[in-house]
């Protein structure tokens, strides 16, 4: 039994109407799933921010300043790219669901993979050089 009162559908804000033009509202389950995926990316981005801060704050005794700063900068830039990219990814997925077109490929996935690989490679080089 639908207990929700027959409330008039709230109109979309100007901002939303402009960014998500045309098409029809998709299945609400899809919209919620898209929102959850977006939030997972945001948490990934937050973890990268926290990681960048941690490298700069906790590793003064382990890493030489150049390595420490480089890793922190790569992590923070990656965090910004993922944070920004996740919003546009969310928007593009929402748009293609409204127009019933195939979902776009996630560009942020390869960015994250390559960025993670770069940081790991930097650390590997540093560890190997330190042992010799």
């Amino acid at each position: 039994m639908p207990t929700s009162s027959p409330s008039p559908r709230p109109e979309r804000g100007k901002f939303a109407a402009k960014l998500l033009r045309g098409g029809t509202e998709p299945d609400p389950r899809f919209t919620l799933a898209n929102e959850r995926t977006f939030l997972a990316w945001i948490r990934t981005s937050l973890a990268l921010v926290a990681g960048g801060i941690a490298v700069e704050a906790f590793t003064t005794d382990i890493f030489v300043p150049a390595i420490r700063t480089t890793i922190a900068v790569v992590l923070l830039v990656l965090a910004m790219a993922i944070g920004c990219g996740s919003f546009f990814r969310w928007l593009n997925v929402e748009r293609s669901m409204r127009h019933k077109t195939p979902l776009p490929l996630p560009l942020i996935a390869p960015i994250l993979a390559i960025g993670g690989g770069v940081v790991a490679a930097l650390l590997l080089i540093f560890v190997l050089l330190r042992q010799t």
């Binding site: 639908p2 207990t3 929700s4 559908r9 709230p10 979309r12 804000g13 901002f15 939303a16 960014l19 998500l20 509202e25 299945d27 609400p28 389950r29 919209t31 919620l32 898209n34 929102e35 977006f38 939030l39 945001i42 944070g83 920004c84 996740s86 919003f87 969310w90 928007l91 929402e94």
Partner: peptide, 18 residues
């Protein structure tokens, strides 16, 4: 939204968090 089979995507919330 689930009950009405229609939900508005929350652009403002996503933009704000990102």
């Amino acid at each position: 939204g689930i009950a009405n089979e229609r939900i508005h995507a929350d652009v403002a919330a996503a933009a704000w968090v990102a």
